[in-house]
């Protein structure tokens, strides 16, 4: 049994401006992925959208024993992690296959396996 973290990077500024058709495509696609997970016997531990990265807080050492705390994401980039799936599975090839289909439907996905 291994665990996998599927990160979903997306150009987050656009979402609210996208036409509703794109929103629906997303809804259909995520709903499909949930069903594929269940059908393939993969266990969804938790999944959630994240608040916009503008609401993130980044913390790093200041080199003198304290922390520098700044508003915003750690790295500035157009694409930020907008959500994630945390999954447990015995069947990595199966999980990869349905995740690829998920990506083909329009989702950006970073597939990460937890180090064992």
């Amino acid at each position: 049994m291994s665990r996998y973290l599927l990160l979903l990077p997306a150009p987050e500024a656009e979402w609210a401006d996208l036409p509703p058709e794109e929103h629906e495509k997303g809804h259909r696609s995520h709903g499909q992925f949930h069903r594929d997970l269940a059908a393939g016997g993969h266990r969804l531990i938790v999944s959630n959208p994240l608040e916009p990265s503008a609401q993130a807080t980044s913390m790093r050492p200041d080199g003198q024993g304290n922390a520098v705390v700044t508003d915003g994401p750690f790295t500035e980039s157009a694409e930020q992690i907008a959500g994630f799936y945390f999954i447990e599975s015995d069947d990595e090839p199966g999980l990869r296959a349905i995740t690829e289909q998920f990506a083909a439907r329009g989702e950006h996905i970073e597939f990460r396996k937890l180090a064992e």
Binding site: H23, H30, N48
Partner: peptide, 14 residues
Amino acid sequence: TSPALRGPITQQTA
């Protein structure tokens, strides 16, 4: 248009 609906949402939410 809330960002809460952009990402992984469950079938019920969809």
